[in-house]
């Protein structure tokens, strides 16, 4: 408790709280689009594929400059989506298998590079392993500013294009028919996912960030049948998970942040599954009785 209080008064920690709140909110909102686009698995591949990008940039530039590492993450993450598309188009391999292959290849390669870096980098290890499970405590002020600013921008884009995203997700043919730039909107949604993965991996880690994208909207779906409400609710669930994860993992030394965030989100999901107003198990049982 004392540690919690002392960390709450710590300026850096306050920044981390704001960052985790906004990151969680943005993840929930964007995750709602991902879920309805039925791209949960692809987003997981994109997240895992960020790891080799981080390592490659570290090997090239030999500095742990977060913006540079994140650019690498964005590149390999995007490459993974293209590779999946290529496999589906050019072979008989089905989508789920293609995603499986890409996750293994990219993540496996990332782990190999990471091991190499840890054995060879001068002094202590570069601390890149926090990218796997996430570590809020490792964030410095400039990292958090990047997360906060980025998350804010992503939420803003989601709001501005909300109506167009909705139609593109529900009925892309009709959207095209009335002249919406459907390819551009799809590209923009892809950008949102890559961007949230990239700004989130320091805090949540590549393994679990897809869970932060998908679990809050899944939970929100049990409370509402309007996309707007669902996105906001998912944002709130994501924000709660983010803050809980940051607080708990910083208080207990050595506990990575990602798993705590995702456990919090999963807890909200189970509550929703049981008691959700729309399709919750308890409600259904009560209605049947």
């Amino acid at each position: 408790m004392d540690t919690l209080l002392s960390s709450l008064s710590n300026a850096n920690f306050q920044w981390v709280l704001v960052g985790s709140l906004l990151l969680g909110f943005a993840s929930g909102v964007i995750g709602s689009f991902v879920l309805l686009k039925k791209q949960s698995l692809i987003s997981d591949a994109m997240a895992h594929a960020a790891l080799p990008g981080v390592c490659i940039m570290f090997l090239i530039f030999e500095v742990k400059s977060i913006p540079i590492l994140l650019i690498g993450a964005a590149i390999t993450s995007f490459l993974a989506t293209q590779a999946i598309q290529f496999i589906i188009n050019k072979s008989r391999i089905k989508t789920d298998a293609a995603i499986g292959i890409i996750i293994s290849v990219f993540f496996g390669f990332g782990i190999v590079l990471l091991t190499y870096i840890q054995q060879n980098s001068t002094g202590s290890q570069a601390g890149l392993d926090t990218f796997i499970f996430g570590q809020a405590a490792s964030l410095v002020k400039s990292d958090v500013q990047l997360i906060t600013g980025g998350a804010f921008l992503l939420v803003l884009i989601s709001m501005l294009f909300f109506k167009e995203f909705k139609l593109t997700l529900f009925d892309p043919q009709f959207a095209k028919g009335i002249g919406l730039p459907v390819s551009f909107l799809n590209g923009l949604m892809l950008f949102l996912v890559v961007a949230i993965v990239v700004i989130g991996i320091q805090m949540v880690g590549v393994i679990l960030i897809a869970a932060l994208l998908i679990t809050p909207p899944l939970a929100a779906r049990y409370w509402t049948e309007r996309l707007g409400v669902m996105a906001i609710l998912a944002g709130i669930f994501g924000a709660i998970s983010g803050v809980l994860g940051a607080v708990i993992s910083t208080t207990i030394v050595g506990l990575p942040t990602g798993p705590v965030i995702v456990l919090s989100a999963s807890f909200i999901f189970f509550i929703s599954l049981l008691f959700g107003k729309k399709k919750g198990l308890v409600i259904r049982r009560v209605r049947q009785a």
């Binding site: 109506k163 167009e164 997700l169 529900f170 009709f174 919406l180 779906r221 309007r226």
Partner: peptide, 24 residues
């Protein structure tokens, strides 16, 4: 051709026919 499980209601779907008029 569409997913009828999509979280939206009838009025909202009809409004989609007005998106061009409403503007981006």
């Amino acid at each position: 051709e569409v997913d009828w499980d999509f979280p939206t209601n009838a009025l909202d779907v009809v409004l989609m026919g007005r998106y061009r008029h409403i503007g981006i």
